[in-house]
């Protein structure tokens, strides 16, 4: 019984003399490979060259600060709840007197850990966050590491540095040209 009518009926004829001589077919094949010899190469020389990253790319997490340099996160736990991969854990703590310059609200995250091996980079934490504290960066990826525990990112690696110009050196950084191209594309998308 035939399932579809798409199957092709093939006749198995003995090869003709020209086919048995192999040479015409060989020459055709060599023509094809020669065309590939001169065609554009698909290789991306990785560490020097990077693939273009989409402006909506969801990469490595960052915990943002507000305009006064205070941590925005209040350790409400909504991101951890939203996380389908259960990659986020946190411990909440109460802000002490004198720490107003460090944390925006009275409650803050004493520890905030993202397990990059569990994370599926879906971005639901970003959507769940009521304080606009956690974001997935479009231009940074979680780099490969040798040890599994190195993939558990604590606050030391997640929180944005105070100086907005001093970006963390960790992660794969775009080149100046790539960053510029990305910025241009993002500007186009806003318009």
């Amino acid at each position: 019984m035939k399932l579809t009518n798409r199957s092709k009926h093939l006749e198995k004829k003995p090869m003709t003399l020209l086919e048995r001589a192999y040479l015409p077919a060989v020459l055709t094949g060599m023509g094809i490979t020669l065309k590939h010899f001169f065609s554009k190469k698909a290789t991306i020389r990785y560490p020097e060259e990077l693939r273009p990253i989409a402006p909506t790319f969801r990469g490595l997490h960052v915990l943002k600060r507000d305009e006064a340099g205070r941590e925005r996160c209040t350790a409400c736990g909504l991101c951890a709840v939203a996380c389908p991969a259960e990659a986020i854990t946190m411990v909440a703590g109460e802000r002490k007197k004198g720490e107003e310059g460090l944390y925006r609200e009275e409650k803050y995250a004493v520890s905030y850990e993202v397990n990059m091996l569990r994370c599926i980079f879906c971005g639901l934490c970003e959507e769940a966050c009521p304080k606009a504290a956690v974001y997935l960066q479009a231009d940074k990826m979680a780099p490969p590491r040798f040890e599994r525990d190195e993939f558990i990112y604590g606050k030391d690696r997640l929180v944005e540095p105070v100086d907005p110009n001093a970006r963390s050196k960790r992660g794969i950084q775009l080149t100046a040209e790539q960053a510029e191209a990305l910025a241009r594309r993002m500007a186009g998308m806003d318009a």
Binding site: T33, L34, H36, F37, S39, K40, K41, A42, T43, R45
Partner: peptide, 13 residues
């Protein structure tokens, strides 16, 4: 290198 070029790659560099 020839193998790579025939297969749209760049080969050892």
């Amino acid at each position: 290198v020839v193998a790579a070029f025939l297969q749209d790659r760049v080969g050892p560099d």
